[in-house]
Design a protein around this nucleic acid. Structure first.
Lengths: 141, 141
DNA sequence: CCTTGACCTCAAGTGAACTTCAAGTGGCAG
DNA sequence: CTGCCACTTGAAGTTCACTTGAGGTCAAGG
């Protein structure tokens, strides 16, 4: 019924060290111990999935902590979620512009990239900070 | 004609410390000095734009260095560019999935997120690593 | 009885890209 | 000549999310 850290590690794909690290950060907690060994309820896997989801969405661990209520899933602030979704939209737009630029540079017939007008336009955009995300934006991709 | 570090900083939007850091990393170099002070040719701004572009595309500074020839823009390997473009495509797909998920969670009428089947599907995807990029993928977004 | 293997703790290390700091230098305005 | 202020250096500190290492505990199996 209860899982030990190795089982949680296997089922979640995280290392035991990472699980202990997450515990230190207040993201998860064992229900008890058997001797020294941590024992987890299976529901911890759901919590870890939530953490993975938050990370994927660009939240930091510190931000994710408060979102995970002590019980199930309370503090999911809908405004925050919507904000992250908007940030993702901006990121996606930037990435698509980048991708097109790269694609062009890869295919460009000009002997030197600097001589290609398309490449120069992209470069100008980069110079003017078009591609530089403001830290508030979605992060770790 | 020649720019000092403060001018380059202003025009590029980077701090002088960052410019010195880039120099340490071999990304840029002053043409000379006036006293202790670095003097740059205006073309350094183009080089910095290239660096910004590379960063935006997900290359690390270490990767960008060799791409910037000592002169203009030689070592831009077209295969690498195409690969990064492909990586960006995969990233974009993931981000779009995430964004839709967030958008749903933000709008979801279920009283608790865990009761929403859509949310649970997303959570499962997260649990199975759907959203976790493999480090080879495009990085800092 | 003794080894093995999985667990434990606490501290320190990693890497990326900077930023901050302390202490010093140099050119130009007044 | 004297300040001032933007510059100089090298080293250390920061953030994030972990990973690694040293040294220790414990239950089961041969």
């Amino acid at each position: 019924m209860l899982l030990d850290i190795g089982e949680v590690a296997r089922k979640s794909g995280l290392s035991p060290a990472t699980l202990r690290f997450y515990e230190e950060k207040g993201l998860i907690a064992p229900v008890g111990r058997r001797g020294l060994r941590r024992l987890y309820e299976p529901v911890v896997l759901e919590r870890l999935a939530l953490v993975a989801l938050g990370r994927a969405a660009g939240f930091t661990l510190a931000e994710i902590g408060p979102m995970l209520g002590d019980d199930g899933v309370p503090a999911l602030n809908r405004q925050m979620l919507a904000d992250k979704a908007d940030a993702l939209d901006r990121t996606i737009a930037r990435l698509m512009a980048m991708r097109d630029g790269l694609r062009h540079a890869a295919a460009c017939p000009a002997p030197r990239h600097m001589e290609c007008p398309t490449f120069r336009r992209i470069l100008d955009a980069a110079a003017h900070g078009f591609f530089s995300r403001d830290k508030a934006e979605t992060a770790p991709f």
